[in-house]
Simulated assay, not measured.
Amino acid sequence: MYAYIDVLGFVASVISFVLWWPQAALVWRCRKHREQLRGVSTSSQVLLLMNACLWGAYAVGTGSLWVGAPGLVNGPLAVITIVLLRQSRRGPQEVRGSTADKVAR
């Protein structure tokens, strides 16, 4: 009926996906280099996840596929990015009984 509305929704969905992909790719590439991830905000990823969930709920409520489509990609990207950021910011775990620990005693 209104094919141009579907095209508009599709284009908006693609733009929403492309918007967040570079940051997720950066976090994936630099996941073992914590100093390179200092500028990546965990809170923005949490907001992205909340946004994806809310738009998904709205899409289900209204029956509009394209409104919720970006959340199917951006939601998991946000979760993976949050996990990688937390792991990188935790840093190496100190091992009890290590050589450095024994020398200090």
Rank of each mutant, 00 (worst) to 15 (best):
Q87W: 12
R105E: 11
D101Y: 00
W21S: 15
L54D: 02
Q45C: 10
E94C: 03
L84I: 03
V7I: 13
F17C: 15
A52Q: 04
L54R: 02
G39P: 07
I5Q: 09
D6A: 10
G56F: 14
L48G: 09
V40Y: 05
A69Y: 11
S13E: 02
L72Q: 11
V73F: 12
R31Y: 07
Y58S: 11
L85S: 05
L84S: 00
L48V: 06
E35Y: 09
L72R: 05
V7E: 00
A3D: 11
V18R: 11
N74P: 06
S43F: 04
L85H: 12
I82D: 04
I15Q: 03
H33A: 08
P70C: 09
M1S: 15
D101T: 05
R86D: 11
Q87L: 12
A78R: 08
V83H: 13
A104H: 07
N74G: 07
V40R: 08
I82M: 12
H33M: 10
W20E: 00
G71S: 05
A78N: 01
V83E: 10
T62Q: 15
A69D: 01
L72G: 15
Q36A: 14
R96Q: 12
V67G: 04
A12S: 04
V79P: 09
A57R: 10
Q45Y: 14
V27N: 02
A78M: 04
G75S: 01
N51E: 04
G9R: 04
S43Q: 10
V7N: 00
G61L: 09
Q87A: 08
A12H: 05
V83D: 10
R90F: 05
S88F: 03
A25M: 04
R96M: 06
V73M: 02
E94R: 13
W66V: 02
A59G: 15
C53N: 00
T99S: 12
